[in-house]
Amino acid sequence: MPGVSWGLRRAVARRFEGPAEQAADAAHTALLATYLTDLLEPYGLGPAGGTGDGQSYGEMAAALLPDEPVDALVLAYDIPDIAPGRATATYLSHLCPGSPMAFAVSDQGRAGAHTALRLLHDYARSGTYPRGLLIVAEQASLPYDPGVPVEVPAAHCAVAVHLGPSTLEAAVPRILPGVAPEDVAGLLGDVGPATLVLGGHLADLDAKADTIVLADPAQPMTGVWEALASVEGPVVLADYDPALRYLCISSFG
């Protein structure tokens, strides 16, 4: 979009009480248990119960879709959906005004949302998909032991980040791999006259900014994006994944 600023228009966050309707469906729960058993068995793992209290990303995201048309929609998540049989991004494209091109990003920890933002940024700059919608979602049920340490969110939460022509221009997100904890402050630097939102693992960081907001540490994926929905003006989101050692920095304005 040469000559036109593209970036944050607004962000809307919502937490969802209770499980999805599908979670109460005995037939769905039985099929999900079979599906998980088949996938986990080769690794010596198995379901651990809890399939009855999860949430559906399709239903969560549908509640946050805008009224105006969208050109591109990207869903970012980390914890698996309780409805793995649904092509959720395609489902959301069907529901969303504009029938946007839609896909999902996962398996990157909390870096997934920043990768999704970068993709939307690049698509917009191509001039083909100027109106973007980033949906970041996590549900608080992991019905199996993955065999490695993992952070499970405390609440079902989804955030819709609306992107397009804006005075809060979005810079290209920085996703830095292989970052040691002691190097985070130096790589982040002084963000200047902006609000800095720090992810849960950066709460003790000696950061330099006009205003510092701490994201909810109990929401590994959605924490910084939920905080984005509550601040105004120029803002920088900084998140760190200690397991994957990704430092992610996304700025608006």
Rank of each mutant, 00 (worst) to 15 (best):
Q139H: 11
P173N: 12
Y123D: 02
H114S: 06
E169H: 13
Q219H: 02
V191D: 02
G44C: 08
L117D: 00
G200I: 05
V4K: 02
P146E: 14
V184K: 06
V197A: 06
L244H: 11
D183N: 15
A89T: 08
H94C: 02
D38Q: 12
L45Y: 05
G199N: 05
G132T: 00
T51L: 15
P130S: 12
G58Y: 03
R9F: 01
I249R: 08
P242H: 08
A24H: 15
Y43I: 06
D216Q: 04
Y35D: 11
A111D: 04
L117H: 00
E21K: 13
A83V: 13
P66N: 05
G186H: 05
Y77W: 14
A227P: 05
R9G: 13
L237W: 05
A23Q: 11
R110H: 02
D216V: 05
A20S: 15
V191H: 09
P100D: 00
R125Y: 03
D210I: 02
A140Y: 01
E59Y: 02
P80L: 04
V235A: 07
Y77M: 07
L134R: 06
G52N: 12
P143T: 10
A194N: 03
P217D: 12
A113C: 04
P19E: 13
L39Q: 12
P220S: 07
L196G: 09
L36R: 14
P234V: 06
L168G: 10
G46S: 13
Y129T: 01
A194V: 08
E232G: 08
A61K: 01
R9P: 01
A23K: 10
A27T: 15
M1S: 06
P100W: 00
A243T: 11
G147R: 11
A72L: 12
